[in-house]
Simulated scan of single mutants.
Amino acid sequence: MLALALFLSTPVVTGWLVGDLTGGAARRLAAEGESLDYAVEPVSLGAVGDRVLVVVASVLMVVSLALLIHATATRKLDPRWWSVLVPVVLAGVLIGLAWRIATAGAIGANIGAGLVVLAGGPVLLLLLGVAVVQAARLSREHRRRVG
């Protein structure tokens, strides 16, 4: 459950930390009345809603990490499970970064969005694949030891 909370909160926090990636030239043209093109239209809950979402996601991420680190330190969590958690966190970071690239305003095509799909998609699949394989292997080992 903590790994899921970490996976869901990481993209939100990453996206907030990265911020809007709309280029300066596109911003100037938008200020002059040009409409920007988006590969994916940005989603907003409003100023207050966005802040609440980021605060909740940040707290969830920090608490999840703290509890997982504490569980590892007190030997309630086998340290080998970090071979699952690290790819999950990296996948969350990649999703947050990809979201910001895909939602950047542009004049014309958003080349970055295409590159994110072409390059980031396989990396994301690899990270999640590693996490799933490692989780299955560790679960199988645990079942063998327990009974």
Rank of each mutant, 00 (worst) to 15 (best):
S35W: 04
D37L: 00
D37E: 10
A39L: 11
E41G: 00
E41F: 09
A47V: 13
V48P: 02
V48N: 01
V48A: 14
G49W: 03
D50K: 02
R51C: 01
V52P: 03
L53W: 03
V54L: 08
V55T: 10
V56G: 06
S58F: 14
S58N: 08
V59R: 03
V59P: 01
V59I: 15
L60S: 10
M61E: 14
V63T: 06
L65W: 05
L65S: 09
L65C: 12
A66D: 00
A66F: 13
I69C: 14
I69V: 15
A73F: 10
K76G: 04
K76R: 15
P79V: 10
P79T: 12
W81R: 14
W81L: 13
V84G: 05
P87V: 07
P87E: 06
P87K: 01
P87A: 08
V88K: 04
V89D: 04
V89T: 15
L90Y: 12
G92D: 11
V93H: 08
L94D: 00
L94W: 08
A98T: 15
A98R: 07
W99F: 12
R100I: 03
A102F: 02
A104H: 04
G105E: 07
A106V: 06
G108E: 01
A109C: 00
G112L: 09
A113G: 02
G114E: 03
L115G: 13
V116F: 11
V117D: 01
A119F: 15
G120E: 09
P122K: 08
P122C: 06
V123N: 06
L124T: 00
